[in-house]
């Protein structure tokens, strides 16, 4: 083995080995193996739900609402969700952003045609209310077109979001019964207010 080979043989082998190993790691995504980055909350997102009916509507509304609220506050939806989960006393700014986000979500769902007509939700709504059976039967007997003409889903939801005490909703997230009762009261109130407004417009 010549003197030159003794000086360069091992260094060349080492450079080839290191470049090979680091190159293979990088080519396979090394350096980018990091946790999922939060998406831009202001970018339009397609949300889906495994639930049906009102639960599905509520879930999509909440997911889009969180996006809208996070966009208003210039944080990611994940950061916003964690902030809400880690505090017992959300700030006024957070509550306002959440309300604004939910209302924007209603508008967006109306615009993209994913908001179901009121008639599609009536049966399920009536199942969970404590109205008189006769009244329930009467409402069920109404044609869908009459219900949809009298009640606009977006109007009811917007009124319900306005009426909801969001601080209490957030505090009740782990109490299913209390949550449902609170939402039912808000939705019932919103339905009444929407009907009254409709009648006033007709008169």
């Amino acid at each position: 083995m010549t003197g030159l080979h003794r000086w360069v043989g091992l260094p060349v082998a080492a450079v080839l080995l290191v470049c090979g190993v680091v190159g293979v790691q990088l080519a396979n995504g090394g350096g980018e193996y990091e946790p999922l980055r939060p998406a831009d909350p202001c970018a339009a997102r397609t949300v889906t739900s495994q639930a049906q009916g009102i639960d599905a509507l509520t879930e999509r509304l909440v997911l889009l609402g969180i996006d809208g609220a996070a966009c208003r506050l210039h944080v990611s939806r994940e950061a916003f969700t964690l902030e809400l989960a880690q505090t017992d006393d959300p700030t006024d700014a957070q509550i306002d952003a959440l309300r604004g986000g939910l209302k924007s979500a209603v508008m967006r769902m109306k615009a993209d045609g994913t908001l179901p007509p009121a008639s599609a939700l009536v049966d399920e709504s009536l199942d969970s209310t404590d109205l008189n059976d006769l009244v329930k039967r009467l409402i069920r007997a109404l044609p869908d077109s009459s219900i949809d003409a009298a009640l606009k889903t977006d109007d009811v939801l917007t009124r319900a979001v306005d009426d909801l005490d969001l601080r209490t909703v957030l505090a009740n997230l782990d109490d299913q019964d209390a949550l449902e009762q609170q939402i039912e009261v808000a939705v019932t109130g919103a339905v009444k207010a929407s009907l009254e407004a409709r009648i006033r417009d007709l008169v």
Binding site: M1, H5, R6, W7, G9, L10, P11, A13, A14, V15, L17, V18, V21, V22, Q25, L26, N28, G29, G30, G31, Y33
Partner: peptide, 30 residues
């Protein structure tokens, strides 16, 4: 096999450890 001078051997050893640590810093998965 390669019979490098001792100082080359040590220098290459240092370089290999540095390269190995860079490789450990960037695994493509767990």
């Amino acid at each position: 096999l390669l019979r490098p001078p001792p100082e080359v051997e040590v220098a290459v050893g240092c370089f290999l450890v540095a390269g190995g640590l860079v490789g450990l810093a960037i695994p493509p998965s767990a």
